[in-house]
Write a protein that binds this DNA or RNA. Sequence first.
DNA 1: TGTACATCAGTGAACGCGCGTTCACTGATGTAC
DNA 2: TGTACATCAGTGAACGCGCGTTCACTGATGTAC
Lengths: 207, 207
Amino acid sequence: MSSSLGAQSTRSPYHHGNLRFALLAAARDLSQEQGTDSVTLRETARRAGVSHAAAYHHFADKRDLLRSLAAEATADLATAMSRTLASDQPFAETLEKIAITYIEFARDRQAEFRFMFSRELCMPSGEPDALRDAQLRMQDAFENYFRAHGNLIQDADPRTLTLTLWSLIHGLATILVETPALKDLPAEGADELARQTVRVLVRGLAV
Amino acid sequence: MSSSLGAQSTRSPYHHGNLRFALLAAARDLSQEQGTDSVTLRETARRAGVSHAAAYHHFADKRDLLRSLAAEATADLATAMSRTLASDQPFAETLEKIAITYIEFARDRQAEFRFMFSRELCMPSGEPDALRDAQLRMQDAFENYFRAHGNLIQDADPRTLTLTLWSLIHGLATILVETPALKDLPAEGADELARQTVRVLVRGLAV
DNA sequence: TGTACATCAGTGAACGCGCGTTCACTGATGTAC
DNA sequence: TGTACATCAGTGAACGCGCGTTCACTGATGTAC
């Protein structure tokens, strides 16, 4: 399992360099430019400058390619989130930063974000799986944070708190990305919405 | 614009009865059974017992069919939400019911729920549009409710409150529907998660 | 009531297309002796 | 250092497929006189 960034080696180990990485990058670009539906094995290979049959030396099939793409993206997001949670800042501020991290990821990497939460992708397979691992890692980061800050919080159950915060952030990210009227919102505006909604959550709705 | 339910007339006005309705129903069933990617014009027509060319007398193209499906589903959800918001119950209880309504819709009609928030579907067209109308109607119902209950709430801006609640509910619905581990959760479990998360939102995170 | 006509929902064949996957192959690289 | 061999990433042609869309048509229905 190679790290998602920086795996692009300059040496050419076999014939073509790191084709697996090149194919993932091509699929990433393609989905970002033309939409998730436009990602085909053939077009991905074409972009990587390689015959389409070559892809089968690196991925079992098309679904495997997409799952790998989603797994690497999820790992990147989990890493970014963990970093934010680890920075020793005040509780409310940390949560606001988390929300901003999340929605900026969703906006910057829209297509991958859609793949990450596409059940048609995640569904089968009971074996250990990079995508599922990355998702659990993200969830754990949240839960551990809430466990560590239990004294700040009314409700004791870290799982409920995690689900609540994650739902809020994920919902906001989805709405920002999938609503036509909000798609061109400047970054500052989106960040501000993230801060405001988290602030409501921290303070609560009822007087 | 026919209402989404009950438009199935028993008389046969022309040749085949209300084919538009039959096609929408076929697409709905198909997406529910086989997934959103499996909806094709040809298979939809096949299910409706009609040649695939017939669909073009009722929809401009495939996208139009899918948009119509999403629009009707959104209208149904907006109606259900408005009904819940209109019932004169205590604030916190109403919000919990809203959340339950929303996630039950998402779970019962997963495929349509995905179509409703598929940007690849919503994107173009500036003209008046049934899908966009239905979405705005749903949003307005929220905002009006918060406006009417402003005295109960700390933060004054109904738009921010709407976005916060909607994000929370939408995120939870998405997570419940798209996470393999949660897909087979029994209804009571899902409802309980909805109640708990809303309760956290109402009370707030910070002590 | 009967006839002529317009309407238009539904038909079935045809179009061109790009897809995912398989296959026998080729040819560069790394390894054993 | 040189030779024979195994490995395996990448090739290119071929497969069968179902798709969205178009088209000239047919035939049932509703309407005007």
